[in-house]
């Protein structure tokens, strides 16, 4: 029997008459990539926000690493080991790539309530941040401010920020978005390895990426999970072909 690290049970969220999340149950097991696909407006981003704590749920629960996350805010869930990336890169624009990662490292490793030591002289912090930057191939761009990084580099930085938290599960919201074919290819092989460190709940529109990476796929349409299964099962599912794949193929 597989053991889920993340268990979403009967989660619901309505905005007025719109059911953005309609009784969603999903699990994420150790060692796997579980892809969440669905057309625009299917409620993927709402679901991510509910998992991360940015949006409260009407009912249902999110169990992470055996703990019910109800009542915990975004920061507390991040501390417990939920590492997320944003659909639209969300970094500290005035900081260099290095200082961005240093912020995440300091948050994970120790405290932000240290007032006197200059962070640039904090060798442990700098070394750890550089190590993470080199994992996403950004070490040569460490001193460049985030505002001057290219779109693709900012996507890499997003991932570095999640890595710095040494999470127990990754929630990646369209990591391929806007990446060139070369960048996507490299990211695919990176994520392929990453699943050994921590399982990934992957929201992605790039079907090639999804089909080559995912162990399981769940399809979200109008806030409901209409199908869930292995790659082959999803490919063969007529409801999915109609609702979703038909549009892209």
């Amino acid at each position: 029997m597989t053991n889920p690290i993340l268990e979403i049970k009967n989660l619901k969220k309505s905005f007025g008459a719109l059911k953005a999340t309609d009784d969603v149950s999903i699990t994420l097991n150790v060692g796997e990539i579980h892809a969440l696909i669905g057309p625009n407006g299917a409620g993927k981003s709402t679901l991510i926000k509910q998992i991360c704590g940015g949006l409260s749920s009407d009912s249902g629960s999110v169990i992470f690493n055996g703990k019910d996350l109800a009542g915990l805010d975004v920061a507390e869930r991040a501390q417990l080991g939920l590492g997320r990336t944003f659909q639209i890169s969300s970094v500290i624009m005035e900081f260099s790539a290095l200082r961005n990662v240093m912020l995440a490292v300091q948050a994970f490793n120790g405290s932000s309530f240290r007032f006197f030591k200059n962070v640039r002289n904090d060798k442990v912090l700098v070394a750890r941040a550089m190590e993470i930057l080199s994992r996403v191939d950004l070490e040569k761009r460490a001193e460049i401010s985030a505002a001057e990084l290219s779109h693709g580099e900012r996507r890499q930085l997003e991932i570095a920020l999640a890595l710095a938290l040494e999470p127990k599960a990754f929630l990646l919201d369209e990591p391929m978005a806007g990446m060139g074919p070369e960048g996507s290819k490299r990211l695919i092989s990176f994520l392929d390895e990453l699943r050994k460190e921590a399982p990934i709940l992957l929201i992605e529109h790039d079907m090639d990426a999804v089909f080559s990476l995912a162990d399981r796929i769940s399809v979200l349409v109008y806030g409901r999970v209409v199908a869930s299964g292995t790659v082959d099962e999803i490919r063969a599912n007529p409801a999915v072909r109609e609702a979703y794949l038909g549009e892209t193929a």
Binding site: G54, V74, A75, E76, S90, V91, I92, L103
Partner: peptide
């Protein structure tokens, strides 16, 4: 000041 969402996402209130 610049990005509260990011600060929370790395685990700082």
């Amino acid at each position: 000041r610049q990005n509260e969402e990011r600060l929370s996402a790395v685990g700082v209130r």
